[in-house]
Amino acid sequence: MLDQIDPSRAISEAADRVARTTRGGLLKQAGVGAAILLGGVCTPAAAAATSQKQDQAILNYALVLEYLQSSFYTEAERMGALKGALARQAEVVGAHEREHVRALRAVLGPVAIARPRFDYRGVTEDPSAFRDTAVAFEDLAVAAYKEQAPRVQSKELLASLLSIHSVEARHAAWIRYLAGRLPAPDAFDDPLPRRRVVAIVEDTRFIVAPAKTSGKKPPRFTG
């Protein structure tokens, strides 16, 4: 099932539609980069000292995925291109994802990474592309959380992340149903390694560098 995430058309098509920047370059420009998504790799020798940092890295990793999803649903709702059951799904799931972002940011405090800029390249304005991308995002989130769960050091944190993980699984089932796909295709779900998640997110080119809208040039306005 997870192997089908990238070929689920929406993400790969979105990536193909706008091929203006080299692969991976945008993530680096955005200051998010693979380093953030890949952060938190902890050596066993330093486990005691770094367990808190490792949990923080996992939280920030989760936060990037939640940013990606919450901005996606929020933009879809604001652009108003969705109707009926799909619009309702975006509205409800968007509210959940924004709450996930809020909760993760609250627990991370000052070490929470900033929200990157996103360019969904028209996917939020096309019901069919939106639906396919939402399936991919939700499957991706479920698999990504699953992979991180055994690495979480704090039991309290693990309990919290599991409560997000199961909601992501419900989202995946919901949008799969709306997309005419089997909501629960397998008896067991596979986790998705972080490198695969990063590669998939990079391929979308949805994370972009912020537009440089401020400068230091002397103004030449009419004065």
Binding site: T74, E77, R78, E91, V92, G94, A95, H96, R98, E99, R102, A103, L104, A106, V107, S154, K155, E156, L157, L158, A159, S160, S163, I164
Partner: peptide, 17 residues
């Protein structure tokens, strides 16, 4: 079960556009 590390609140819909 351990207490949750995250504080969860009720999801809120988007404000008016």
């Amino acid at each position: 079960p351990p207490a949750s590390a995250l504080g969860f609140a009720r999801p809120t819909p988007l404000a008016s556009d």
